[in-house]
Amino acid sequence: MTDYPIRHIDSNPTQAGLASMLANVTFTDRETDNLQMQILQPWGLVDEKGKDRLYPAVVFVQGSGWTFPHVYFQIPQLSQLARQGYVVATVTHRSMENGHRAPAYLLDVKAAIRFLRAQADTLHIDPERIGIWGTSSGANAALLAGLTIDDPKYRIDEWNKESDSVSYVVDCFGPADTVEMVDNFLKSLEKGKAALEQLSAREQEIQTKALASLKKDMHNFVGSDGGKLDLDLVRELSPIHQIKKDEDYPPVLILHGDQDELVDYKQSVELYKALVDNGNTAEMITVDGGQHEDGFWSQEVLDAIWDFIGRWS
């Protein structure tokens, strides 16, 4: 007698463990430079009784050297969070390459947070449970968002009736001390100029162009109309210099590879110490041998981030 085995799997009426994506959601209303985010949601937007579910949300800011972020870069990893029951929005901001000097990137990230809070019901978000996570320059934005909550200095027209508060910050290898970063840049510029005399004519031409490009990038980021760097602005964009004595800040998780050649690992250590010494909740994870993005990521790193987000959402 022929056997016809059939496997049976229970139905999943609430779509638990699955995720969906809302692509290219516009969160600004401007004549030019309108910005969009990509939103990942748990698939189960209603419970067994047909009532709308509200989920904690995570705002993710991809590192980009303060240029336009590649919003799709981490979506494969971010989908893990969505499948665990989080709404995840990977957001964009204006680029310094297009003439948008700092703090334009921070203003836009804060606008994205306020948009999510304003659209919380539609997007199935619990407005009291929104956190932020960033990498590299995106982590600088995330840190500043957490350290300057509802500061009117960084409030623009979009969704300005909403709060830009966050419940926690996850910082992956972000520049924590832009004062030191710019100081090192200026020293490198002088060293590069001094070395020109020892180069051949062709090498001098290449080095001169490289130095001019670096100088242009720095001016695009924190330059003033007078052509000089705005050192007050540089300090303002430095998270470690934003920490105010006895101020209550959201919990911060700092992760950094100790072989990072782009953003000094010591900056994260000093930021961690400054937060702890100020009485704030902070945790730090060192990725041994980790560089800047390269060799940094692993499932163990992601699981540590998921654990922190779960505890503070």
Rank of each mutant, 00 (worst) to 15 (best):
I6D: 04
R7N: 11
N12L: 10
P13E: 14
Q15R: 14
M21S: 08
A23G: 00
V25P: 03
V25T: 09
V25F: 04
R30E: 15
R30C: 10
R30M: 11
M37N: 06
M37E: 11
Q38M: 04
I39R: 01
L40D: 03
P42G: 01
W43V: 00
L45R: 13
V46F: 05
D47W: 04
K49N: 12
D52K: 13
P56V: 01
P56C: 02
V61K: 01
G65E: 10
W66C: 06
W66S: 09
F68R: 13
F68S: 12
H70S: 11
Q74T: 03
Q77P: 00
L81I: 02
R83V: 03
V88F: 02
V91R: 08
R94F: 13
S95Y: 12
N98W: 11
H100P: 12
A102W: 07
P103D: 11
A104L: 15
L106R: 12
V109H: 06
K110D: 05
K110M: 09
A112G: 14
A112D: 13
I113A: 05
I113V: 15
R114T: 07
F115A: 10
F115R: 07
A118V: 06
A118E: 12
A120V: 08
A120Y: 05
D121H: 15
D126E: 13
P127F: 04
E128S: 15
I130E: 00
I132M: 10
G138C: 07
L144K: 02
G146K: 03
D151A: 04
D151V: 00
D151C: 03
K153R: 12
Y154E: 00
Y154R: 00
W159P: 01
E162Y: 06
D164W: 02
D164P: 02
D171S: 14
G174K: 10
V179M: 01
V179L: 01
E180H: 08
M181D: 13
N184G: 08
L189D: 05
K193D: 01
K193I: 02
A194E: 11
L196T: 04
E197W: 00
Q198F: 07
S200T: 15
E205A: 15
I206P: 06
T208F: 06
A212F: 08
K215W: 04
K216C: 07
D217Y: 11
M218R: 11
N220Y: 12
N220W: 13
D225L: 10
D225I: 05
L231E: 00
D232S: 03
L237W: 02
H241G: 02
Q242T: 06
Q242L: 07
K244L: 08
K245E: 15
Y249F: 14
Y249H: 05
P250F: 05
P251T: 02
P251C: 03
V252S: 01
L253E: 00
I254R: 00
L255K: 03
H256N: 09
G257E: 03
G257D: 05
Q259I: 00
D260G: 04
L262H: 06
V263H: 03
D264I: 07
D264M: 04
E270I: 05
A274K: 15
D277A: 14
N278E: 09
N278L: 06
G279I: 08
T281N: 10
M284L: 11
T286K: 08
V287S: 09
D288W: 06
D288H: 12
G289C: 10
G289K: 08
D294I: 11
G295D: 03
W297S: 02
L302Y: 14
A304T: 12
D307G: 03
F308N: 07
G310K: 10
W312N: 15
